[in-house]
Nucleic acid binder design. Structure first.
Lengths: 113, 113
DNA sequence: ACAGAAGTACGACAGTGGTCAAACTTCGAC
DNA sequence: GTCGAAGTTTGACCACTGTCGTACTTCTGT
């Protein structure tokens, strides 16, 4: 059955701030969150623009999931990912938006140079 | 001259988000920021409630200063510390407040157990 | 049934960063 | 000027974590 492959999703309210920051500090993971934040639809693990191996990517997705930042579910052999925006916002008000905004601003500045 | 001992203070707007997160992820450093955030007056390095050695504390203060989060100046042999709230807020809107709020909420929950 | 695609799990390795002790510097007080 | 208080600097150590390759699992298409 497919449901057996669905890994545990903690409630963001149960995740310590420390875990959230540890999840967001890694650039590759932040990139995943950013790509999800500007995507209208969920994205498969293999559909991200990432410069790491598959096993490393798996590791990053796991950290993000356990930090309550993303939701994962299977669609065939693909594991889809989506941002848990509202739930996370409720648990850590303003945090994700602040990080995303700062990140976007930096990306914008890089583009101007 | 006393001014020679004043270390460099970067403009928070010039600090990469990565450095800010690295500064805020260490619990001891977050504790420093929290203590400053609820203090009306600047606090000397030795005046914090920290469970690390002096040299480690020095390291933490340096990281916070270079992340644009605190301002340091000398008063005699004491190095005073204050939070650069407004300047930092301008550079990273909402970030510090979100972290402080989450931190305070967690501390509150710990108190209720 | 079989092959290939998509991820995961498991070790192993290397770089980073938090930690401390010890030696040093700077200032204030006596 | 001397001593002590307050921090800094340096060097070494250690734990953690990001990284990868390999082997394994699960599903889809043919």
């Amino acid at each position: 059955m497919a449901a057996d492959r669905i890994p545990p999703h903690p409630d963001p309210r149960d995740v310590p701030l420390q875990h959230v920051l540890e999840a967001l500090i890694e650039p590759a993971r932040r990139s995943i969150v950013e790509q999800l934040s500007v995507s209208a639809a969920p994205i498969a693990c293999g559909g991200f623009d990432l410069a790491v191996s598959k096993s490393t990517a798996t590791h990053h997705f796991r950290v993000l999931r356990e930090a309550g930042l993303i939701r994962q579910y299977y669609a065939g052999t693909s594991r889809m990912n989506s941002l848990r925006r509202e739930e996370f916002e409720e648990a850590f008000p303003g945090l994700l938006e602040a990080v995303l905004e700062a990140s976007a601003r930096e990306a914008g500045l890089r583009g101007l140079v």
